[in-house]
Design a protein around this nucleic acid. Structure first.
Lengths: 138, 138
DNA sequence: ATAAATTACTTGCTTTTTGCAAGTAAAAGG
DNA sequence: CCTTTTACTTGCAAAAAGCAAGTAATTTAT
């Protein structure tokens, strides 16, 4: 397991020590909103993550118990990454980022998601968490 | 001003392009929870930010309209940083990080804040946003 | 059976970001 | 004045991220 440097015992700080890099939360976003689960799918994202960085981030997220890695059902040369409960618990963070980004950035937002968020953020969070848990069991 | 590199038009991505570095959200945390407002106060945080990085982050956050800089009321060699409305809107992100960090990290959490969050997250968010707006007017 | 394609990486090198220690400069206080 | 406060800047080292290419175990196609 890769040892993590903790800057302090503040919860915000420890959360950022794990998730506060340039890519981790974008990988989690792809899992939550795009249903991605493989290395090959993550590589294809719009933001163009470098393959060595992706491999490193996946290893850290797995070692931190945020996602689990298992051999895919169809091929044994393929791996499936799924959110653990600790990973599912990051969804409120990601939703908060969606809201801030869509309000203040020059962004293109899925209208369906926007509508759902306006109708009620907590309900949206719970729905995506439920979906992620269902996937994890599949 | 400093031009920001945008990786994509996804709201999560654009939010992280601005806030997703090692220090910005910790500076905002200090403003929201510790009521800090000056360079000297930010430097003293438990996580020990380097002074050049602090200066750079403050400049970026100001140029992005997340905080405003003004001469302090007492001394003109002192500056006061305050959250703008765009900055106040980051509070839900910070609260989400507090919740995740306190649930999953080895952290020390203010019991009063924990209790308030358990009683209702939205109410806590609104209270801290109200406090930040009051400060901004002072 | 074998050659080509898929899948998930690794390796070596460059660039960017962060970290560290010291120095500067204007203003305030004694 | 002379010292302290306040907010930085500078120069260099270390760590993280970016880029292009290469490797290796399957899996599919011929």
């Amino acid at each position: 397991m890769k040892e993590l440097k903790q800057r302090s015992t503040c919860p915000v700080s420890t959360a950022l020590d794990i998730l506060g890099d340039k890519w981790s939360l974008l990988i989690l976003r792809d899992m939550v909103f795009a249903g991605k689960s493989t290395y090959g799918e993550f590589v294809q994202s719009a933001e163009k993550i470098a393959t060595n960085v992706l491999a490193d981030r996946l290893a850290v997220l797995e070692s931190q118990g945020i996602l689990s890695k298992s051999v895919a059902s169809d091929k044994k040369s393929k791996f499936t990454y799924r959110l653990t409960e600790k990973g599912v618990d990051t969804i409120p963070i990601i939703i908060a980022l969606v809201q801030w980004g869509s309000k203040h950035g020059s962004t293109v937002v899925d209208p369906g998601l926007m509508e759902e968020l306006e109708a009620g953020k907590d309900a949206a969070v719970e729905r995506y968490q439920r979906l992620a848990r269902e996937k994890a069991l599949a």
